[in-house]
Nucleic acid binder design. Structure first.
Length: 417
RNA sequence: GUGGGCGUAGCUAAGUUGGUAGAGCUCCAGGUUGUGGCCCUGGUGGCCGCGGGUUCAAGCCCCGUCGCUCACCCCA
């Protein structure tokens, strides 16, 4: 039995790459327009970092992390999400001292040991941003506008941006108490999962797929927000309207990571399977301090690359193709072609060839398949007569070139003036 | 961790009540001797996921196992 890839991880094959590269390039360009800079942080960290930031009792930390001891006996974890590492780097390099607002983005693999299914893998990729240092609501708006803009630019529609506020340390407690007392009376009628969640994460009960529709009359966070949180949320709301960014308030939107405060949001897509959240994020005003930095605000999001790509239409993504296909017939021509290929490639011209020297018919097929607009034909006769034939694959027009001036001639035709 | 569906060629997939595995696409070579896409002909390519059992005989039936997949849970 041949060795296979680890369960839940995927090879991203050349055929998939145009979509990946297009998404990554579009994101880079957009984020940089907004003043964000790329940061690359390690894919593993000390386990404690994730326990402290994500929350020790969350599912991610309790049962999904790839954690192991390294040879020095220290507990190491493959990152299950991107924010913790970026915030750690922000604090470690004292980036808060450089400017009031630090805008960062990242992309790369994340790891969670879950049972794989559609849109959920054990190694998956996220593109994320973090804006650290300010808790001004306009930063929230900027980040949401950027998220909205990204999906517009990659041509994915039909998504819904849901937003909510989770309040802060001041008002969330009161809401939590209200929910618990609301649920307490109904507890016996709820599903087993909800009874368990009542203890671990009562806010999540409202989001239950089985009993979720029973809670139409439940207390909602927005009614419990303190003045500051309420103002913050209203400013974000007004700003989104002003920028014509469509959204829906979902008072039951709860995040699975403990660090979120105030603004939270999800970008969801119907009919993407059960894993219908394409991107999600929120504000985390307590996190930087928790990691050992100053008390400073932060907000970010991450999008699931595999999920986003499954929504993209590959039809309008240009595939890379050579400018020229060189057909060399017979060993002499193949030998002659070697430096020609080298010179053209060195000059930045994309050239493909087939080294077999086989029949012209089979090479024409390969030239056609390569997508090249032009085919250069060099055979025994051409070598003898100091000629080469240049064929336009679309018009079928052929012209005769001289071998001694071939490279200069081709450069003139194929390089932009 | 729990449940459903599925494993036959590189891909998509037929295979009757058990009787010696067929096809389309791809790939390769031809179809006037040096010209692609369409068409035609031929060829390469299968431990039928793996192991065991029943049987004269197993792709098909039984048991086990591994893998893939979808859903629960959780989340991007």
């Amino acid at each position: 039995m041949a060795i296979q890839a680890i369960k839940g991880v995927k090879d991203i094959l050349p055929a998939d790459m145009p979509l990946w590269q297009h998404l990554e390039a579009t994101a880079r360009r957009l984020f940089e327009d907004y003043g964000f800079s790329e940061i690359r942080v390690p894919i593993f960290e000390y386990t404690e970092l994730f326990a402290r930031s994500i929350g020790a009792s969350t599912d991610i930390v309790e049962k999904e992390m790839y954690t192991f001891e390294d040879r020095d006996g220290r507990k190491i974890t493959l990152r299950p999400e991107g924010t913790a590492g970026v915030v750690r780097a922000f604090v470690e390099h004292k980036m808060y001292a450089e400017s009031q607002l630090t805008r960062l983005y990242y992309m790369g693999p994340m790891f969670r040991h879950e049972r794989p299914q559609k849109g959920r893998y054990r190694q998956f990729h996220q593109i994320g941003v973090e804006a650290l240092g300010l808790d001004h609501p306009h930063v929230d708006i900027e980040v949401l506008a950027m998220l909205h803009g990204l999906f517009t630019r990659i041509g994915v529609g039909g998504l819904t941006l849901q937003i909510n506020s989770l309040g802060d340390s001041e008002c969330r407690g009161a809401y939590r108490d209200a929910i618990k007392s609301y649920l307490k009376a109904r507890l016996p009628t709820l599903c087993g999962d909800c009874q368990r969640r009542y203890e671990t994460n009562p806010l999540r009960v409202l989001d239950c797929k089985v009993d979720g529709d029973k809670f139409a009359d439940s207390p909602i966070m927005l009614d419990y927000l303190c003045t500051a949180c309420k103002e913050h949320f209203e400013t974000v709301e007004a700003g989104l309207r002003k920028l014509d960014i469509p959204f829906a308030i979902n008072p039951r939107l709860v995040r699975g990571l403990d660090y979120y405060t105030r603004t939270t949001f999800e970008l969801v897509m119907g009919h993407l399977g059960a894993q219908n959240t394409v991107a999600a994020g929120g504000r985390y005003d307590g996190l930087v301090r928790e990691i050992g930095g100053p008390a400073t605000g932060g907000i970010g999001f991450a999008l699931g690359v595999e999920r986003a790509i499954s929504l993209m239409d590959s039809a309008n993504i240009a595939l890379p193709r050579p400018a020229l296909f060189l057909s060399a017939l017979g060993p002499e021509a193949v030998a002659f072609a070697l430096p020609v290929l080298h010179d053209l490639r060195s000059a930045g011209i994309r050239v493909d060839t087939d080294y077999t020297g086989s029949s012209l018919k089979s090479q024409m097929k390969k030239a056609d398949k390569s997508g090249a607009d032009l085919t250069l034909i060099i055979g025994e006769e051409e070598i003898k007569n100091n000629k080469a034939i240049l064929r336009n694959m679309k018009t079928k027009e052929q012209s005769v070139l001289t071998l001694t001036t071939l490279i200069e001639d081709l450069k003139k035709r194929l390089l932009p003036a």
